[in-house]
Simulated scan of single mutants.
Amino acid sequence: MLQTGEMMNSSSTLQSPHSPRRDPLQPIRLWLDSFPVHNPTIARRLAKLIPPQCPFERDIKFFGRTLLHIPPLCKLNPFYEELVGLRFRALCYLADECGEDVRPYC
């Protein structure tokens, strides 16, 4: 006969039908999050390549009236947060370790 504690342990090992699915993009996200920034040349390239703000948000106007608003599509990018973090780490490396002025990248 199972004791109460054993019943709880055996039922907790079962997967619930609503458990989160595996993310196929997780390895790329982890790689971007752990990408080392230890080279000033690479840090400068990252700061130049990754934009500081979303370049897609636009208001389309005709005779001074807004006809269409295009929302920031960067939020749809599955790697948006990781890329912003990588750019931030590159700028911090340039400012803290290399003593560079990072205002031209902003």
Rank of each mutant, 00 (worst) to 15 (best):
P51A: 00
P104F: 00
P104D: 05
R22L: 13
I50L: 01
C74I: 04
E6A: 03
A43M: 13
L46H: 00
R87Q: 12
A43C: 12
T41S: 07
P55E: 06
I28A: 10
L49M: 14
E97H: 08
P27D: 04
G64C: 02
H38G: 13
D33R: 08
K48C: 12
R29D: 10
V37H: 02
G85N: 11
P78G: 06
P51V: 04
E97K: 15
P104W: 01
S12M: 05
R103D: 06
S11W: 10
E82Y: 03
G64D: 01
T4V: 09
I28H: 06
N9L: 15
H38A: 13
S34K: 02
R21I: 15
T13S: 11
Y93S: 02
S10N: 06
I70A: 04
Y105I: 05
Y93R: 14
C54E: 10
T4I: 06
R21T: 15
I70K: 03
R45V: 08
G99L: 09
C98R: 15
A95G: 05
L2M: 00
V84Y: 10
R87K: 05
M1P: 07
W31R: 10
P78Y: 14
T41P: 01
N77T: 02
N39W: 02
M7L: 11
I60D: 11
Q3V: 09
L49C: 06
R89A: 01
R44T: 14
Y80T: 03
F62Y: 13
L32K: 03
N9H: 15
R22T: 14
R87C: 11
P72V: 09
F62A: 14
P104K: 01
L83G: 09
S19P: 02
G99H: 08
K75L: 12
L91E: 15
F35H: 07
P40Q: 14
F56Y: 02
M1L: 03
F63K: 07
Y105T: 12
S12Q: 11
Q53V: 05
R29C: 12
P36I: 11
K61W: 08
K48G: 14
P36F: 13
P36C: 08
R21M: 13
D59A: 13
A90V: 10
M8H: 09
R44V: 13
Y93V: 03
D96P: 05
L49A: 04
F79D: 15
L49G: 09
F79S: 15
R21E: 15
P24Y: 04
T41F: 04
E100M: 02
D96A: 06
R103H: 09
E97D: 02
T13Y: 01
Y93C: 04
L67P: 13
P17V: 07
S11D: 01
I60L: 12
E82T: 01
F62Q: 15
R103A: 05
E97F: 01
A95C: 08
C98I: 14
G85Y: 06
R87V: 15
L67F: 15
P20W: 09
A90R: 12
N39K: 00
P51K: 07
C74G: 07
W31K: 06
